[in-house]
Computed example of a mutant assay.
Amino acid sequence: MDTVVSNAPPVHVRGETTSRLPVTDHVVVMGVAGSGKTTVAALLAERLGLDVAEADEFHPRANIEKMSAGTPLTDEDRWPWLRAIREWLESESDAGRSAVVTCSALKRSYRDELRRARGRVRFVHLAGSRDLLAERMAGRSGHFMPLSLLDSQLATLEPLEADEDGLVVDVTTPVRDVVAAVAAWLHAPSAS
């Protein structure tokens, strides 16, 4: 696992796009609500020319209704959702494509399920302080996830471990620098 910290010098990558990842390499942009997963995933996918999916689209209606009511999901609620994301990654692999997907991926066991997808699955953990995440959540509109579930997500979160194929990024880093750092990490010889 690698780490990018906010006081590190920005990573500069020439041009607006970089080359595509090796076929069937997938990136899961993970973290709790308010960490910026959707923004980073969309910009990263655009930069790399990859398909992108939002994990919320894989939730069954019952999960969304439960979260909207302020009730945390259980593991039993999450397993079908995680399998659906893994199956989407596998369909991308079967089509010979790499992809980017958002997913909170809060526990190692959840990430293990996603890692079962054909191809290499790498994780980018967007990490930030509770206060910053709460501020971001309070400022967004039209999302079903209430601020009241942030503490539940933080309590459930198991950070990436040293043996996991991942990168931790401080979300106080400007988003453009986050995307550049992730793209550079994905293309680094040690990441292959």
Rank of each mutant, 00 (worst) to 15 (best):
P159V: 02
A162N: 01
R136Q: 06
V168I: 14
P60T: 13
H143L: 08
R120V: 11
P174Q: 11
P22T: 03
S190G: 09
T74W: 09
V28A: 01
S98K: 08
F123L: 10
G36C: 06
S129G: 06
R61G: 04
V168H: 00
E16D: 15
C103I: 03
D25W: 11
L73P: 04
P146V: 07
V178M: 06
D131M: 10
F144H: 07
A41V: 04
L150C: 08
D165R: 09
S141V: 13
H125A: 10
V23Q: 06
V175R: 14
H26L: 01
P9S: 01
S104L: 11
E158K: 07
R115A: 11
E57D: 14
T17R: 15
D165C: 07
R136K: 10
S93Y: 06
A45I: 01
S190W: 03
T3I: 14
V28K: 03
V23A: 14
A188H: 15
E92A: 12
A134L: 07
H125D: 03
T172G: 15
H143E: 07
V175W: 04
T74R: 06
G119C: 05
R97T: 10
V40L: 13
N7C: 04
D51P: 07
E113W: 01
W88V: 10
D131N: 13
H26N: 01
H125Q: 10
R108I: 03
S141N: 11
M137D: 03
D51V: 04
G34N: 03
L160P: 09
S98Q: 10
L21Q: 07
L50R: 08
R111D: 00
T173I: 15
A95R: 10
L114H: 01
V100H: 14
D56V: 04
L43I: 11
R122Q: 10
V11S: 11
N7K: 14
L43P: 15
A117F: 00
G15T: 07
A181T: 04
H125S: 14
L21F: 06
T17C: 14
L73G: 06
E16L: 05
D94M: 09
R136S: 06
L43S: 11
L133T: 02
D131I: 06
S35Y: 03
H187S: 12
R111L: 00
